[in-house]
């Protein structure tokens, strides 16, 4: 039934908005307009329900600016029950973290070590929960401005953990473990590329490919040089990435030229 489909569409669009009267009125107004248009299109017997649905949704146009304004109203946000629920959730979680810390510390007698382990672990859990919610919301609304950044932040965190483990828990030491850091820009490019392919269903922009491959070769050179101690002539590895990237760019541009000239 069209009414239910429109309602579901609007539910998705308005999901991240506070339960304000203004948002509710706007939603109802859009639903009224959609149904008015749909009823008129129904009179044209040649159109299927699917065609009517898509035509009506298309007629709405881009109202994301209005949604942003409704979402960014701080007074509405404070009155929003979901906002209050999140605040209560955060407070409860903080109290649980303290309780877990005290329990672990009493149990083990390691007050300092427990603090180092329990609090970052609890912070990690809340970070995973919050970012998962944002990515889920982005996917529902098909807006991915932050998705690449969130995935990238995980690569940075994992690299940091890997550095501390390698530097202080293995014989490698910090003098060599630093070589993990130059991989961070590459990981950020990879996260961005993943977002384009998986979430946005689009091609990876050429700039990301060029920068990512070039940076990967630099990071790979540093890694090889640090491990082997051969700083020369392993620097040749650093040239590999830009060369591959430029060849890929030439092939890509040639294909575009061919497609345009057809």
């Amino acid at each position: 039934m069209l009414f239910n489909r429109f309602k579901e569409h609007l539910d998705r669009q308005f999901k991240s908005l506070p339960d304000s009267r203004e948002a509710s009125d706007f939603r109802e107004e859009l639903l009224g307009n959609l149904m008015s248009r749909a009823m008129e299109l129904k009179e044209d017997k040649s159109l299927t329900d699917d065609e009517i649905y898509h035509s009506c949704i298309d007629s709405l146009g881009d109202y994301s600016d209005t949604l942003k304004k409704l979402a960014s109203n701080p007074i509405h946000a404070l009155r929003d029950k979901r906002f209050l629920r999140d605040v209560l959730f955060m407070l409860t979680f903080a109290l649980i973290a303290v309780a877990v810390y005290i329990a672990v510390s009493f149990g083990t007698g390691e007050w300092g070590l427990a603090a180092i382990i329990v609090f970052p672990a609890m912070a990690g859990i809340i970070y995973i929960y919050a970012t998962a919610k944002v990515i889920l919301s982005n996917t529902m609304l098909n807006r991915h401005a932050l998705t690449g950044l969130i995935i990238g932040s995980y690569t940075v965190l994992i690299t940091l953990v890997a550095f501390f483990v390698t530097a202080f828990a293995t014989p490698v030491g910090p003098a060599k473990a630093w070589v993990l850091f130059p991989f961070i820009p590459f990981f950020l490019c990879a996260s961005s590329a993943f977002t384009f392919v998986y979430f946005r269903k689009k091609k990876i922009p050429m700039a990301i490919i060029l920068f990512g491959l070039s940076w990967l070769s630099v990071a790979a050179y540093l890694l090889v040089a640090v491990i082997t101690g051969l700083w020369h002539p392993t620097w040749l590895i650093a040239l590999g990435g830009p060369i591959v990237a430029l060849v890929a760019a030439i092939v890509g541009i040639t294909q575009k030229i061919d497609n345009q000239s057809r």
Partner: peptide
């Protein structure tokens, strides 16, 4: 309204 939805 029409079809269950009010008009503004």
């Amino acid at each position: 309204g029409v079809g269950g939805a009010r008009r503004k």
